[in-house]
């Protein structure tokens, strides 16, 4: 009887060992993730990121995502806002990994998006929906800035599923269409955005540029003229450059020169303006010198509007990220609450 019982116990143990090992591994991952989240909630950002990185580089991707979501589900039911804090940590990690650790970056991006969508499923209030859309759009903006266009496109589409016509998503998607030379699709996204947000200058510029590409010259020129005559920003500079090109192409060098000069008068540190002014003047038969002394005086303040346009659009992300930063303190408090840790306090000088 004793021998039989020993054998039965050994057999049961043999069957339980693999399942137990998996369970222990999962528990270990979850506990490590909770520790990282605890540090994040407590305002120990670098410790949180370092712990998360150790976890991310050691863990197997699929299992890692499952463990993180299991933790998220556990505390998300108690306070969904805590999920947004966890997603913010994953986005920060994504930015860290993006340039050098593509696999880890992809995992962080997926997890961040999954945590936000978990939050969306638990809290359907309009304010929560806005926050979810902002988080996903910010993540998409980071992906686009890192040339991860298809990931960005997917995330922007998820944003629009949550909040149709969300400005950052429309602008971001339009920029991706531009990269694929899909100018009609880009214009289609930008047109309603410009109607709803007439102060969205980057969107207005991108719409005008795409209309120009689509041969809608009159409308494009009108819009470029408005943008080139107003504001003190890179949008004005680029609108002036594009308008001057249109004018020079039909032989109106005087108009082109005046447009560029007016922009250069308020934006002396855009490097493209003096170059274009010099060419326009030369083509008109004048002898306007190429003035590089202004640029010498600008130093680090020199900024190329054309380079700004080439990058992933960020103008609609700026206010959105400001809102996220404002909300993040509250989300971290929620995370601290569900984890039972002391929330972030201002660090005291030692």
């Amino acid at each position: 009887m004793r021998r039989f019982l020993t054998c039965a116990l050994l057999l049961a143990l043999a069957a339980a060992v693999p399942a137990g090992a998996a369970f222990r591994e999962q528990s270990k991952l979850e506990a490590a993730y909770r520790r990282a989240l605890g540090a994040w909630a407590a305002g120990q950002d670098e410790d949180a990121l370092a712990q998360l990185q150790r976890l991310d580089q050691d863990g197997e991707v699929g299992r890692l995502e499952r463990a993180k979501l299991a933790v998220g589900k556990a505390f998300g039911r108690r306070n969904p806002a805590a999920l947004l804090a966890a997603a913010a940590l994953e986005e920060r990690a994504y930015l860290v990994y993006a340039s050098r650790r593509p696999t880890m970056a992809a995992e962080a991006r997926h997890t961040a998006a999954a945590l936000v969508e978990l939050h969306a499923s638990l809290d359907r209030a309009p304010a929560a929906r806005t926050a979810d859309a902002a988080m996903l759009a910010s993540l998409a903006g980071s992906a686009a800035a890192g040339s991860q266009q298809s990931a960005a496109e997917d995330l922007y589409n998820r944003v629009l599923a949550l909040v149709p016509r969300q400005p950052a998503a429309l602008l971001g998607l339009a920029a991706i269409h531009e990269l694929h030379a899909q100018y009609a699709e880009a214009a289609e996204l930008l047109a309603p955005l410009v109607v709803e947000h007439p102060d969205a200058r980057e969107a207005r510029l991108r719409l005008a540029v795409n209309e120009l590409r689509l041969g809608r010259r009159e409308r494009a020129e009108t819009n470029l003229r408005k943008l080139a005559g107003d504001g003190v920003d890179w949008v004005r500079s680029l609108a002036a450059q594009e308008l001057a090109k249109v004018l020079a192409a039909r032989g109106d060098f005087a108009g082109a020169g005046a447009t560029i000069d007016a922009a250069a008068a308020v934006l002396p540190c855009d490097p493209s303006l003096p170059v274009q002014a010099a060419l326009v003047a030369e083509r008109a038969g004048g002898a306007t010198p190429l003035d590089l002394s202004t640029l010498g005086a600008c130093g680090e303040a020199a900024e190329s509007a054309r380079a700004r346009y080439t990058h992933a659009p960020s103008s609609e992300l700026v206010p959105l990220r400001r809102d996220i930063a404002a909300g993040e303190r509250e989300w971290r408090q929620a995370l601290a609450g569900v984890l039972g840790v002391v929330a972030a306090q201002p660090r005291v000088s030692e």
Partner: peptide, 18 residues
């Protein structure tokens, strides 16, 4: 990322739910 040095200090948070 440079891994932070290990310290013998007690944790500043508690691990309970899991």
């Amino acid at each position: 990322i440079a891994a932070p040095e290990a310290t013998p200090s007690p944790p500043s948070f508690t691990v309970a739910p899991d």
